[in-house]
């Protein structure tokens, strides 16, 4: 090659023309792939906003569902039901997940730590419908009825692995000098963790919990045989309750035009909440990154 280049560098220039064509074609194709995936998102968003916002009314937030065949009504009970389920799920998933994450990042070592990490990944990979079956056999069968409690437990179990992993990750990102500083001041390990390390990672941990909530808020499968569904208000924690995702499912597969309209409205509300949470969480983390760099 060096000889050729010495004689006439232009004529034998590498890369040869056919390589250049392949280059342009393949690179364009990859760009089109990216464009395709992003346009799917824009399409989904556009379609839901168009169809959902049109079907949305004040009644949606304040009224109970009406029997099939009648028009009107809303999903106030499903909105409150979803909120209650998420509250219960956080009460179960956040403490166990966050404390488990603290264990892995600050105390854990050896085979037990490995086992916890491995089981967490395993639990994270369990299909959500299997979690639903599990909670059904655990709570619904002994109680002999569906309940908000069972639904909340199912979502809570789904929150644990992600809460644990995000907490673990953000705690590990805290520089070791902070740990050493705390210990050098005479604080015990636990004091250092509680007063220095966790506050330093707090923003990340909170962001992780927000994303986690956004994820389980849309889960339908684990609620089908735990929280079940309800046409009316569900008081307390012991009765079956409606929730937005399950209502969307039931309305979407129904034959009624008006229920389809309501499903779009509910989908729009649910997706807006999930996307807003994702965007806020993203801004929180990126804001944190840029300040820590300066």
């Amino acid at each position: 090659m060096s000889r050729a280049r010495a004689n006439s560098p232009r004529a034998h220039a590498y890369p040869p023309p056919h390589k250049k064509v392949i280059n342009v074609v393949m690179l364009t194709l990859t760009g089109l792939c990216a464009l395709l995936v992003v346009s799917v998102l824009l399409f989904i968003l556009g379609y839901l906003v168009w169809n959902g916002a049109r079907s949305l009314s004040w009644n949606f937030f304040t009224k109970l569902p009406v029997p099939a065949g009648q028009t009107g009504g809303g999903m106030a009970n499903a909105i409150v039901g979803s909120a209650k389920l998420l509250l219960l799920a956080s009460a179960i998933g956040v403490p166990i997940g966050v404390l488990g994450g603290v264990y892995l990042a600050e105390f854990g070592k050896g085979w037990f730590s490995f086992a916890v990490r491995y089981t967490t990944d395993l639990l994270n990979g369990v299909p959500s419908i299997v979690i639903g079956i599990f909670v059904y056999t655990l709570i619904v069968i002994p109680q002999h009825h569906f309940s908000t409690l069972a639904g909340g437990v199912a979502l809570g179990i789904m929150m644990i692995p992600i809460a644990l992993r995000s907490t673990d990750e953000f705690l590990r990102a805290v520089p070791n000098t902070l740990r050493e500083g705390g210990l050098a001041l005479g604080a015990s390990k636990a004091q250092t963790v509680v007063t220095v390390i966790i506050p330093a990672a707090m923003q990340g941990i909170v962001t992780g919990i927000m994303l986690n909530l956004a994820r389980v808020a849309g889960e339908t499968a684990p609620l089908l045989f735990t929280a079940f569904g309800n046409q009316f208000w569900s008081s307390g924690w012991n009765g079956p309750t409606a929730s937005l995702p399950v209502v969307i499912f039931n309305y979407a597969i129904s034959p009624y035009e008006d229920w389809h309209r309501q499903a779009w409205a509910a989908g729009f509300v649910l997706l807006s909440g999930i996307f807003l949470t994702n965007i806020v969480a993203r801004l929180l983390v990126s804001g944190r990154r840029s300040t820590s760099r300066s």
């Binding site: 403490p95 166990i96 488990g100 086992a115 639990l123 015990s188 004091q191 509680v194």
Partner: peptide, 24 residues
């Protein structure tokens, strides 16, 4: 000093995850 307590509490949480999975 808190170390033992903190260890026990976080250890219990970590153990809970293993127990839930085994129970499942």
């Amino acid at each position: 000093k808190g170390d033992e307590a903190a260890f026990l509490i976080t250890f219990a949480s970590a153990l809970t995850i293993i127990l839930i999975t085994c129970l499942l």
